[in-house]
Every structure is written in C-alpha cells, then in structure tokens.
Computed example of a mutant assay.
Amino acid sequence: MENKKVWFITGASKGLGLTLVKKLLNNGYNVAATSRNLSDLENAVGEFESFLPLSVDLLSEESVENAVSQTITKFGQLDFVVNNAGYGMIGALEELSDKESRENFDVNVFGSLNVIRKALPQMRKQQSGHIFNISSIGGFSGNFPGFGIYCATKFAVAGFTESLAAEVKSFGIKATVVEPGYFRTEFLTSGSLVVPKNPIDAYKEVRESQAAHQNDINNQQPGDPAKGVAVIIAAAESENAPLHLFLGPDAYQVANLKIVDVQKDMEDWKELATATNFDSI
C-alpha cells in the first residue's frame, strides 16, 4: 500500500461529490466513494487503481460499517470523511407531511451520523482525521420561504458538527461544516429536489420560490463546483482548518446579513433580556 491520504466520500455519483472525487484522484489521493447506484458511480468516475467505488445504503448502519471496513482493508487508513449525500426539499411547513419531513432528516442528518459513528473508531485509533459535513448556507440562515425542513436538516448538520469538533479535538481529529451557496450542480433538478405531494396554493411566496429554483436558478447558479472543491481540499491540507467553511460570495453575503440581524435583535432587547438572573443579595 502506498502511504497516501485516504478520503471517504458519500453521495459521489454527481454534484460536488463527483467533482471532489475526480479532483482528488487526479491529485494522487486514495478515494473511497459511495452511491446508492454503483454503476452510476463507476461510469461517472472511471477506473483508477486508487479508487474504491461502494454501493451503500446510508440509512443502514450495517451497510455503512461494511463500506468503512472495506476502505480500511484496501487502503490501510482513513484520513478524511466527507458527508456529502443529501437532497433538497421545498415546501411550506404546513404542506409537508410528517413522512416527507422525516425522510429528509433521515438522509441529510441520520445518514451522516451513521458514517461518523462508524468512521471515528479508526480515526481515534490513528489519533488523526478530519470530518467534513456538507451543510448549506441554508444551515446558517433559514430566511428562504419553502425551505424550512431542508434548512432544519442543515442547521442540524451545523450543530452536531460544532459539538463533534469539541468532542474529538483531544484525539487529534478535526471537524468542519461546509456551508455552500449556489453552485452549478444537479441539486435543483427533479432527482435532487423534492416538492410537496400536497401543495397549498395559498402559499404564494413558496410557490414563487419553487418556480424560481426549478426554472430560473437551476443551471444558472454562480458557483463553480471545481473551485468549490478546491477550497475543501485546501482546508483539508491546512494546519488551521476552519470549523465553519462558507463557500461562495453569495454564502458570505447571506451569512453577514444574518449576523447583522442577530446582533440587532440582541442589542434591541439587551437591557430587558439580560435582566433575568436572580437578584444578588
């Protein structure tokens, strides 16, 4: 086995995941990558000595554990994990059923937690590693009509990544939540963006947002996936990797607006909201 860094990437048959896999292989890394459909992944990437394509059901702990085990058996170590698999969902909170909402959480949140749970024993053994969890700028700001459930899943990803970073720091392991803006991938196509089964016409802003994302924004996103994954690789190679990695000028703009809004709310209500301790005697 060559002593090269090993990456494990989920949701790798398209989008940012596929772009990242190709870039890493061209840069000489060992890469294990997962997809629900193995042939799609193999056809998209091609054959490389340093590539291990895996068919994985991220909602099955057994399937995830088997994939991580195969990766370690083939490459001998596990250095970087990228939880990239997920899908978008648009629909007002009232429109989306419990089943629709839970399914989005299953893939976007619990699938990633399954991977983290199975990857950490090897990383703790090595006393090294870096986990990247792909969230969204919608995981930092929820000010997107119709994306409430999706944003909630991505807020969850950001939250558990912050806790993860604190939990594994003493083992020499890092964690980063990646929060991209709009990148020109297949994310807004029908295969990656789910719409409500029972829409409510009264939600005018949601319908307008749905139409805009499906018809106007799709294929017009400003972000270049190749440039986005290059930043992720740079963060992986850096001694001072960020906990929060915002990707794209649009992500920075939205994040800065959110920070200003939060600071204003805090300042406006500071006098009343901080007078809540028991009076000292």
Score class of each variant (00 low, 15 high):
Met1Ala: 07
Asn3Ile: 10
Asn3His: 13
Thr10Lys: 01
Gly11Pro: 07
Leu25Arg: 04
Leu25Thr: 14
Tyr29Phe: 15
Leu38Gly: 00
Asp40Asn: 15
Leu41Phe: 02
Val45Thr: 12
Glu47Pro: 02
Ser50Thr: 15
Pro53Arg: 01
Ser55Met: 10
Val56Met: 12
Leu58Gly: 05
Ser60Lys: 08
Phe75Gln: 09
Gly76Thr: 09
Gly88Gln: 06
Arg102Ile: 05
Asn108Gly: 04
Ile116Leu: 00
Leu120Arg: 00
Pro121Tyr: 01
Gln122Trp: 02
Gln126Met: 14
Gln127Asp: 08
Gln127Cys: 07
Phe132His: 02
Phe132Leu: 07
Ser135Ile: 10
Gly138Glu: 14
Phe140Asn: 04
Ser141Leu: 04
Gly142Leu: 06
Gly142Trp: 03
Gly146Asn: 08
Ile149Phe: 02
Gly159Tyr: 05
Leu164Gly: 00
Ala166Leu: 13
Glu167Trp: 12
Lys169Asp: 12
Gly172Trp: 10
Thr176Tyr: 04
Thr176Asp: 09
Val177Gly: 05
Arg184Lys: 15
Thr189Gly: 10
Val194Tyr: 03
Asn198Leu: 11
Asp201Arg: 08
Ala202Ile: 15
Glu208Gln: 15
Gln210Arg: 10
His213Tyr: 09
His213Lys: 04
Asn218Arg: 13
Gln221Val: 09
Gly223Pro: 10
Gly223Ile: 08
Pro225Met: 08
Ile232Gln: 01
Ile233Cys: 13
Ile233Pro: 11
Ala234Met: 07
Ser238His: 05
Ser238Thr: 09
Asn240Glu: 14
Pro242His: 04
Leu245Ile: 10
Gly248Ala: 03
Pro249Ser: 12
Val254Tyr: 01
Val254Cys: 05
Asn256Arg: 12
Asn256Met: 11
Lys258Asp: 14
Val262Ser: 06
Asp268Cys: 05
Thr274Phe: 06
Asp279Asn: 08
